[in-house]
Write a protein that binds this DNA or RNA. Structure first.
Length: 284
DNA sequence: AATGACGCCAACCGCTGGGGT
DNA sequence: AACCCCAGCGGTTGGCGTCAT
């Protein structure tokens, strides 16, 4: 069953807004606010559906909207936030005052995604010449789909994700034996393709996401005690601080690698951590 | 000057989750 | 528990402007 678009009902207007409509909407919201978007157009005397009014206000008419081109800083922030959050445009917009989710989404699709694809293409071309890594995966460059939703393939599953969605974890899981650790330091390690390396992870316990990571600033390593959770109930993530990438996402967190042992093998994860006072918690 | 290709972006569509009954 | 209503979200579309031929 296909639902008819709301605006098709009874001659409601669609398409671009006129300055007069804008004026009516602004004036009404200034006087009465927007408690009920559905009722608003009728009360304001607009031949639009509530949804259309809401969108026009949120994306264009709000007084705190910042118009004009995105600055370099804003673009970099979007790239970083997209790395962390994926296509959660509203969450990204919340970090960029004056910018709307729609605007950010458009900028991403029209500028930033293309730019990143080019950059990654260049990086992968460079790697092809210098690579010593044993790779079981076909040597394809980062795909557009990976760029479209990096958060889903570079992080442990979020509480919103299905715990049966194993591929989102395995997508960046690299397998290393303990022996490979030293090799890794020399820049060599085995990268295991998710398609050819199958392993089932137990479901993530909800408590994982709320457990705090205690950080020991003095030692070279700190330990993230997962409590019950990620791989099995006894697991701990060894966070090797030397492996912190030192990337500080706008003061909100750190990008680091984490290791967990499972069936005699070490599994490495990329985790984003955010600081909350003294402790650090997994961002996702 | 005409026209087709392309890029941008405002607006729309359909889905989802929360709250109320 | 089931249903309805609504706001909010992310994906998609279509119109318009610009550029290349």
């Amino acid at each position: 069953m296909v639902r008819a678009p709301c605006c098709e009902k009874m001659g409601l207007k669609r398409g671009p807004w006129t300055p007069e409509e804008d004026r009516i909407l602004i004036s009404y919201i200034h006087k009465h606010g927007h408690v009920n978007w559905r009722a608003l157009p009728k009360q304001a005397g607009l031949l639009r559906c509530g949804k259309s009014c809401r969108l026009r206000w949120i994306n264009y008419l709000r007084p705190d909207i910042k118009r004009g081109n995105f600055t370099k800083e804003e673009e970099e922030a979007i790239i970083n936030l997209h790395q962390m959050l994926g296509n959660r445009w509203s969450a990204i917009a919340a970090k960029l005052p004056g910018r709307t989710d729609n605007e950010i989404k458009n900028v991403w699709h029209t500028h930033l995604k293309k730019r990143l694809i080019k950059q990654n293409q260049a990086i992968s071309d460079t790697k092809k010449h210098s690579k010593t890594t044993i790779t079981t995966k076909s040597e394809s460059s980062q795909s557009e789909s990976e760029l479209t939703n990096p958060a889903s393939n570079s992080l442990p599953m979020s509480p919103q994700q299905s715990s049966s969605d194993v591929s989102s974890v395995t997508a960046v899981t690299t397998r290393e034996t303990n022996d490979h650790m030293e090799e890794e330091n020399k820049g060599e390690h085995e990268v295991v393709d998710i398609d050819s390396f199958e392993i089932s992870f137990p479901a993530i316990d909800e408590s994982f996401w709320s457990d705090a990571l205690s950080s020991d600033g003095n030692s070279s390593q700190s330990t993230l005690d997962l409590g019950q959770g990620m791989i099995n109930n006894d697991d701990q993530f060894q966070i090797d601080q030397s492996l912190f990438s030192s990337v500080d996402f706008m003061g909100m967190g750190y990008d680091c690698n984490a290791k967990s042992e499972h069936d005699g093998m070490d599994f490495w994860y990329n985790i984003l951590l955010t600081t909350e006072g003294e402790s650090m918690v997994p961002l996702f």
